[in-house]
């Protein structure tokens, strides 16, 4: 019985630690800056932002940084301080989903270089965004 209590107590401590570790960003919602401000700031730095969502109290941004690398990053919503940066093409995690994403990304990059093959468009179009 005593052993059970000790094990339970230790488990609770571990769970509390895990919960705190998950909650990466501090500050309450009223102090948050709009995510649109973060988008504008990142785009001004040369980023291409795919999406911004709230995760564990942080703004989680998926996109490409100014060097063209695909990244997943967390920012503090009140200060836009960079909390975590993960470059998806350098991730050593063996998780199957991540591997699939990487393969898709590389295939997509290869497609950027290739010429159209659908028989409708002759040659690669010239494209610009203003």
């Amino acid at each position: 019985m005593k052993n059970t209590s000790i094990v339970l107590g230790l488990s609770m401590l571990l769970l509390t630690g895990a919960a705190n570790a998950d909650d990466d960003c501090e500050g309450s919602a009223p102090g948050w800056q709009p995510r649109e401000n973060l988008r504008q700031q990142l785009e001004a730095d040369g980023w291409e932002v795919y999406r911004i969502k709230v995760d564990d109290g942080c703004y989680e941004v998926e996109g490409r940084n100014e060097y063209g690398s695909r990244v997943e990053t967390s920012f503090a919503p009140s200060t836009f301080e960079l909390m975590e940066l993960e470059r998806e093409d350098e991730d050593d995690d063996d998780d199957e989903r991540d591997d699939d994403e990487r393969r898709n990304y590389q295939a997509d990059e290869n497609r950027q270089q290739s010429m159209p093959s659908n028989g409708i468009v002759k040659g690669r179009p010239s494209v610009s965004v203003e």
């Binding site: 785009e43 497609r111 950027q112 270089q113 159209p116 659908n118 002759k122 010239s126 494209v127």
Partner: peptide, 18 residues
């Protein structure tokens, strides 16, 4: 294949010639 590019953000204009 060979016909993809970046997404377009609010208010911007995509111009393409093909």
């Amino acid at each position: 294949d060979g016909l993809t590019g970046a997404s377009i953000t609010s208010g911007r204009t995509l111009t393409m010639t093909l």
